[in-house]
Design a protein around this nucleic acid. Structure first.
Length: 648
RNA sequence: GCCGACGUAGCUCAGGGGUAGAGUACUUCCUUGGUAAGGAAGGGGUCACGGGUUCAAAUCCCGUCGUUGGCUCCA
C-alpha cells in the first residue's frame, strides 16, 4: 500500500497524492493546460524540477512563464540547450558558466583557437531549435565529487574543475539532456520541447570569474521563448528601444555631438542642447534656493596638494588624468575630479559658529575623470561632465534632518520630470573588507544608520548593497533604467565623516569649543550629461514643454502671411515665450511634418483667416489640430501648462 | 584597459582590386499651397588615418584612432 502525502496549493486548498508524485503530475491532475505550461515547481519555498518526486507533505506552487522564477528556470535550461548545440557543432570546446539573466541567459565558452564569428550564430540557433524539437528531458543525477572531477578531467574542462573545487561532496548534481551533461544545481524545465523560439543576441568577451588576470572566454548571450510570437514581440520592443536611444535622438534634435579631435568622452553641447541644460540648471537652482543653498564657483583645476589632503590623489592619482605642471616652477595641478575639496576650502576661509550651520554650498561644477576607453558610452559615461553638486556642512545632530531634506529634493526633481520607475539603493561598506575604506568604524556606523533611518522615515523603498559604498562614506543612490534596460545611477546622497577630518574643518559650538562638522555630498541629477541621456530615453525626445529646447514654431501658410507671423512672434516674445518662424518656401503639410519630426511641442499655423481675425491655429505635437485661439489665449494656455508641470 | 564587431556625402545606407552610388538633408529656380513629404536642376566624399601587397587599393593584409556590444573599473 502506497503512502499518501498532503500538498497545499497557494490558494490554501489541500490535495492528497501518492508519495513520490511530482509537480508535473500534480499539474496534470488539476488541468491539462496547466501541465503543458508548468516549467518548475516551488516546493516549500525552493524551486525544484517539476519532474522531481515530492516525498513529504509540502507547500507547492507550480511555476509557469508568468512567474519570474519560471522564466529563470526556462532561460537556465535554454543555456544548457545552447551548450548542447555548441558541443555538437564545435566538439572539444570547454564551458564556464551559463546562468539566466534579467532577460535571457548567456554561456561562457572557451573555443580554444576558434574565434566565433557573429555569422555563426544563426547556425547555432538552428541547431538549438533542432535539439529542442527532440523534446529531450532534463535528467537530474546526484554524483559524487570524485566522479564529477573524474568526468571533467577526462573532458579536460578546467573551468568546471575550478567550479567543482568550491562544491561540497554530497550536494553535487549533474543535469543531462540529449547528449549533453552539465554540472548544475538546477532546477530545469521538464524537457527541451518547451523552448520554441531562440535568438542569440550578441557575443562578448568575459573574463573567467570576472578576473581580468584570467583567461577571457567567449560569452554568448541569447533569449528564448515558449512561443514564437513572444520572440517577435521582444524583437519589436528592442527596435522601439533603439529609436529612443539618446545618442540617436541627440543627433537628430541637434542637442550634442562628439568630435574625435576634441577627444573621446568629451561631449560638445550644441545650442539646443545647451538650452535644455540651462533650463534644467535654472530649475535646480530655483529648487535649491528655496532649500537654503548658496551658489559658489570654483576653478577647473586644483593644486595637487589639495587632492593629497583629500586622499583622492593617493587613491585615484595613478588612474586619473595626470598632473599639469607649471612651466618654470614645476608646480603640479590636477584637473578636478570632484568639487568637494574646493568646497572644503571655501568652508575654511573663515571661522564658523554652530549658529552658521548647516551651510549648503552648491555648484554646477564641471569635473574630469579618466574613464577607461571601453567604458565610454554616449552621454551616460563621459570623461568631462557637470555635476549638480552641493556639499552640506552640518553638525552631527543635523545629519539625519539634512539627509531627509535632500531626499525630498531628489524626489521633487524626479516627480517634476516624470521619473516614476527608479530604485533607491543604500550602499554600505563591505564588512569583510574594511581596510578598503577611509575613516573610523565609529564614524561609519553613525553614517550608515543615519542613512537607513532617513530613508525609512521618508518611506523610501530601498535595496541595500554591501561593499558598494564610496571609499569615504556610505551613500544612497537613485538608479533609473535607460531604453535598453541598462541601469544608471542618477541622484546620489553621500555622508562623509572623512573629508572634514582630513581638511580639519571646524566650528565653534555653543560650549565655546571646537567641533568637527559632518559633510553630505549630494547631486539630485548626478551629472547633467547622464541625466539628459536618461531623460531623452525616458521621454523619447518629447520633452515636457518647460524643458523643450524648441517650444513652438510659427508656420505661415504662404509667404503672404510672413508679416502677420512676425507680429505674432513679437507678441510671444513680449510674453517671454520664444519661438521661430518657418519661412521656407514649402507647403503647410511639409512644414507640419518637419516640425512633428523635430518634436516641437506647438505649431502655430497662420494664414489668411488667422491674419484677418488676429488669431492662431494651434497644433500640438503628436495630437494634432487644437483649433483656433487668440494670441493672448494661447499665451495663457501655454504658460498654464508650464506652471502646472512645475507645481507638482 | 581586455575580447568581438564596425568606420563610404551632414544623416541612413548600398557597392567593392581598374581613380565612387541611392534616399534624405543642403543650394538655386518654378510653385503661394490650409494640418505629417509639391516639382525641376545643382553642389558636396583623400571611401577614418598611417603603412604594406599589387601595374593598379575605397576594396586584400598590418597598425593607429574612433564608434559600438559586453567584461573589468568607477571619487
Amino acid at each position: 500500500m502506497s503512502q499518501q502525502i498532503k500538498i497545499t496549493l497557494p490558494d490554501g486548498s489541500e490535495r492528497k497524492y501518492e508519495k513520490g508524485t511530482n509537480g508535473l503530475q500534480i499539474a496534470a491532475s488539476i488541468s491539462e493546460g496547466l501541465a503543458r505550461n508548468v516549467l518548475a515547481a516551488k516546493v516549500n519555498g525552493q524551486v525544484w524540477d517539476a519532474t522531481r518526486p515530492i516525498e513529504e507533505d509540502s507547500q507547492l506552487q507550480l511555476l509557469t512563464w508568468n512567474d519570474g522564477e519560471g522564466k529563470n528556470t526556462f532561460w537556465h535550461s535554454s543555456a544548457h540547450l545552447l551548450a548542447e548545440a555548441l558541443e555538437a557543432l564545435y566538439p572539444g570546446i570547454k564551458f564556464g558558466i551559463g546562468p539566466p539573466i534579467e532577460t535571457g541567459f548567456y554561456y561562457d565558452v572557451d573555443f580554444g583557437d576558434h574565434t566565433l564569428d557573429g555569422s555563426e550564430l544563426e547556425k547555432i540557433e538552428q541547431k538549438m531549435i533542432e535539439l529542442a524539437r527532440e523534446k529531450n528531458e532534463y535528467i537530474r543525477k546526484a554524483i559524487s565529487k570524485k566522479d564529477a572531477i573524474a568526468y571533467y578531467q577526462e573532458k579536460g574542462d578546467e573551468y568546471k574543475l575550478d567550479l567543482l573545487e568550491g562544491l561540497e561532496d554530497g550536494s553535487i548534481t549533474f543535469y543531462e539532456q540529449g547528449n549533453f551533461t552539465d554540472l548544475c544545481r538546477g532546477p530545469h524545465i521538464p524537457n527541451t520541447g518547451f523552448i520554441k523560439a531562440v535568438k542569440l543576441t550578441n557575443i562578448a568577451g568575459a573574463y573567467w570569474r570576472g578576473d581580468e588576470n584570467r583567461k577571457m572566454l567567449t560569452r554568448i548571450y541569447g533569449v528564448t521563448f515558449p512561443k514564437a510570437k513572444e520572440l517577435q514581440e521582444y524583437l519589436t520592443m528592442l527596435e522601439e528601444a533603439k529609436k529612443r536611444d539618446h545618442r540617436k535622438i541627440g543627433r537628430e534634435l541637434e542637442l550634442f555631438t562628439f568630435s574625435e579631435k576634441v577627444g573621446q568622452g568629451l561631449p560638445l553641447w550644441l545650442p539646443k542642447g545647451t538650452l535644455l541644460r540651462e533650463r534644467l540648471v535654472a530649475f535646480m537652482k530655483k529648487a535649491q534656493d528655496k532649500s537654503g543653498y548658496e551658489q559658489v564657483t570654483t576653478p577647473h583645476i586644483g593644486h595637487k596638494a589639495l587632492y593629497e589632503t583629500s586622499g583622492h590623489y593617493e587613491k585615484y592619482g595613478k588612474d586619473s588624468f595626470q598632473p599639469i605642471a607649471t612651466p618654470h616652477e614645476g608646480e603640479e595641478f590636477l584637473l578636478k575630479p570632484m568639487n568637494c575639496p574646493h568646497h572644503c576650502e571655501i568652508y575654511k576661509h573663515k571661522p564658523r559658529s554652530y549658529k552658521d550651520l548647516p551651510i549648503r554650498y552648491a555648484e554646477f561644477g564641471t569635473v574630469y575623470r579618466y574613464e577607461q576607453s571601453g567604458e565610454l558610452h554616449g552621454l551616460t559615461r563621459v570623461r568631462g561632465f557637470t555635476q549638480d553638486d552641493a556639499h552640506i556642512f552640518c553638525c552631527p545632530e543635523q545629519v539625519k534632518e539634512e539627509f531627509i531634506k535632500v531626499i525630498d529634493l531628489v524626489l521633487y526633481v524626479f516627480k517634476a520630470l516624470g521619473f516614476e520607475d527608479y530604485t533607491a539603493q543604500v550602499s554600505l561598506r563591505d564588512p569583510e573588507n574594511k581596510q578598503k575604506y577611509i575613516g573610523t568604524d565609529e564614524a561609519w556606523e553613525k553614517a550608515e544608520s543615519a542613512i537607513i533611518e532617513a530613508a525609512s522615515e521618508k518611506g523610501l523603498e530601498t535595496v541595500t548593497e554591501l561593499g558598494e559604498a564610496a571609499f569615504y562614506g556610505p551613500k544612497l543612490d537613485f538608479m533609473v533604467k535607460d531604453a535598453l534596460g541598462r541601469k544608471w545611477q542618477l541622484g546620489t546622497i553621500q555622508v562623509d565623516y572623512n573629508l572634514p577630518e582630513r581638511f580639519e574643518l571646524e566650528y565653534i559650538g555653543s560650549d565655546n569649543s571646537k567641533h568637527r562638522p559632518v559633510m553630505i555630498h549630494r547631486a539630485p541629477f548626478g551629472s547633467l550629461e547622464r541625466f539628459v541621456a536618461v531623460l531623452i530615453e525616458h521621454c523619447a525626445g518629447n520633452f515636457p514643454l518647460w524643458l523643450a529646447p524648441e517650444q513652438l514654431i510659427i508656420l505661415p501658410i504662404s509667404e503672404k502671411f510672413k508679416e502677420y507671423a512676425e507680429q505674432v512672434k513679437a507678441q510671444l516674445d513680449d510674453a517671454g515665450i520664444s519661438g521661430s518662424i518657418d519661412n521656407r518656401d514649402e507647403k503647410i503639410g511639409r512644414k507640419i511634418r518637419d516640425a512633428e519630426v523635430k518634436k516641437v511641442p506647438f505649431m502655430l499655423i497662420v494664414g489668411e483667416k488667422e491674419a484677418a481675425e488676429e488669431r492662431l491655429s494651434v497644433r500640438k505635437h503628436g495630437e494634432g489640430d487644437l483649433g483656433s485661439h487668440t494670441v493672448d489665449g494661447f499665451i495663457q494656455y501655454f504658460q498654464g501648462i508650464i506652471a502646472e508641470s512645475l507645481s507638482k
